[in-house]
């Protein structure tokens, strides 16, 4: 699912690491100084899906997909999308963007000098960005879909 390479935004200023999620103490998140201890290889922790999906809690939001225009990118109606606002909207990424005030999800594509929002579905025409008021909201990094039997 995570076909987007996990590029991060520019490192800003003097950074002190802060806690990741509520459930993830810093100790367990792999901050290391000096030589790695050989025992590290045998020190298994719980696999934390939240920490895997949410790299930056401050800038990560969960939103719900409505509609079917992004079928080919594997996003379906009702899916949970993980959106990281700290990532840059590079061509090829699926982004959340406000077009004339309405939020939508599309893949960003560049053809020559022009930028398009591509719906990746034969039923939808690419939307050129020129001349529209747009504001990028974030980059969709993961999709979570509940299959039959998965409902709690």
């Amino acid at each position: 699912m995570s076909w987007i390479s996990g590029t991060t935004a520019d490192v800003v200023g003097h950074a002190a690491s802060t806690a990741g999620g509520v459930t993830q103490p810093l100790l367990g998140s792999g901050v290391r100084a000096g030589f790695p201890s050989p025992a590290d290889d045998h020190l298994d922790r719980d696999i934390d899906l939240h920490a895997h999906v949410v790299k930056r809690p401050a800038s990560t939001f969960f939103v719900r997909a409505e509609g079917d225009s992004m079928h080919e990118d594997g996003i379906h109606h009702g899916d949970l999308m993980v959106v990281d606002r700290s990532l840059e909207p590079l061509p090829g990424r699926v982004i959340v963007i406000a077009v004339d005030g309405d939020l939508t999800v599309k893949r960003l594509e560049r053809v020559g000098q022009r930028t398009y929002l591509n719906a990746r579905s034969p039923a939808f025409q690419p939307i050129p960005l020129d001349g529209r008021e747009t504001q990028v909201w974030g980059v969709v990094t993961h999709v979570v879909r509940t299959l039959p039997g998965g409902q709690s």
Binding site: F61, F62, V63, A65, D68, I75, M81, L103, T104
Partner: peptide
């Protein structure tokens, strides 16, 4: 309550 309730997440039209 977009950020604290599962059932109230922001809905975005694809």
């Amino acid at each position: 309550r977009y950020t604290t309730r599962w059932e109230e997440l922001l809905r975005i039209k694809l």
